[in-house]
Nucleic acid binder design. Structure first.
Lengths: 231, 231
DNA sequence: CTGTTTTTGTCACGTTGTTGTCACAATCGC
DNA sequence: GCGATTGTGACAACAACGTGACAAAAACAG
């Protein structure tokens, strides 16, 4: 009952090498040679991670990635993209696909293994914190189970959106979240449009959190970050 | 599923020798006898490295090199130039062509093999560091995930541009970056114009990095370099 | 079903931070 | 020393962000 990794790749040699190494590391593997069978495999059993080649015989890996991101039950499944170098990295990790990481081909297998482990560790931490029913950061208390937030002794009334925004920031604290990522994961829209929506809500959230608002740092030109340590 | 190397060269003997040795080293090879077929080969499959003779029957190797550098998807592909002696080394490694390295003909094949390996290793290290979420060089700490920079215990506030500039320099540390390259990769402008922009921002970056500013070396007449070892 | 309240997206404006350019000083290589 | 190149500080144009206001949309209550 190990973690299952779905490999979507059509080069037989590479598939073999990946399967061998991943199984060596104690993961279960499943292979799909094209986009269509990838979707079928995903429908069948939800993997802990998808390793996805962008170049597939029948459809673009980007489409597969988008499909995963649009499927409610798959949304949280991390995706590691294999790509030839130069293939517009921004679009891969940014709004367009929403991959969690990528490796440039040709790559050494050890590097990929490191990346796989890093992603799974991260996603485990995130899902763990999601399932934790309580959390404290400084004066900020979040009760996920009860859907309640407290600053010091004072209960804070957050709107659903504000709560969601705080949750994403807090669970990923210490890592800067771009506006694109926030729009995707909180608002559920794929937009490159320049909108002040994120900023406005960030401002409201900051105001409601009072002294804890200072934990939210602005990263100019990029987005926002919930500090990992006392500001 | 080895790394593919494209050889662009018209001398049959040399081609044969190169192919043999490169395959011996475990690389896949593909040959183009002139510039036109080189471009076609590039369009077809992106190689991990291009070995390019400057003297071609139909067009100059420099043109091929420039084409690669102008193509969005090829930009990062390293190019190793073969040249008869004296052929304006500056223009080859400098802005005009943007080659990564060059070998003067006649050369010993072993040396070329060394260069090839060195270039490929470098480009792999680069792509690896591109995703690292943290990095330390002397007193300089860069947290890519958090988008933060620290010198010693002190947090340094960098503007988006300064951050980008530092990132490019650090990831390519040990190698001089010409102003043209920096303008292209940081500013995203193709300019042969003489501007003091790079210098000014380099100065600001140096000032903000305090003692770590000394890691940034000026290369007169060319550009700047982030030292690979303690200055 | 209707009126009320809450939530949310958008806008405009002011403020602050950022960046390109320039003039001039300092420095380097010869 | 001389010319070319780079460092440095000042500054104005510009872009990004914070903030408050407002109206549309959604949720809610009666």
């Amino acid at each position: 009952m190990n973690e299952l990794i779905l490999i979507v790749e059509d080069e037989a040699d590479l598939v073999q090498s990946l399967e061998y190494n991943l199984q060596q590391q104690g993961y279960d593997t499943r292979v799909a040679l094209d986009g269509q069978s990838a979707l079928e495999a995903l429908d069948e059993k939800r993997p802990a991670l998808v390793v996805l080649d962008l170049m597939l015989p029948d459809m673009s890996g980007l489409e597969v990635c988008r499909w995963i991101r649009n499927e409610e039950t798959m949304r949280a499944t991390p995706v590691l993209i294999l790509t030839a170098r130069g293939e517009e990295i921004d679009r891969i990790t940014g709004f367009e696909a929403g991959a969690d990481d990528y490796v440039v081909k040709p790559f050494c297998v050890d590097e990929l293994m490191l990346r796989v482990r890093a992603i799974l560790r991260r996603s485990q931490v995130e899902s763990q914190e999601l399932h934790a029913d309580k959390m404290q950061i400084g004066d900020l208390f979040i009760d996920f189970a009860a859907h309640r937030v407290r600053v010091g002794e004072k209960e804070v009334e957050l709107t659903p959106l504000e709560y969601q925004l705080l949750k994403v920031l807090v669970i990923r604290r210490g890592r800067t979240q771009s506006r694109e990522v926030l729009l995707r994961d909180v608002w559920d829209i794929e937009a490159e449009v320049m909108t002040r929506t994120v900023d406005t809500h960030m401002q409201r959230l900051r105001a409601k959190l009072e002294q804890c608002g200072e934990w939210i740092a602005t990263v100019r030109g990029v987005g926002y970050r919930f500090e990992a340590e006392e500001p």
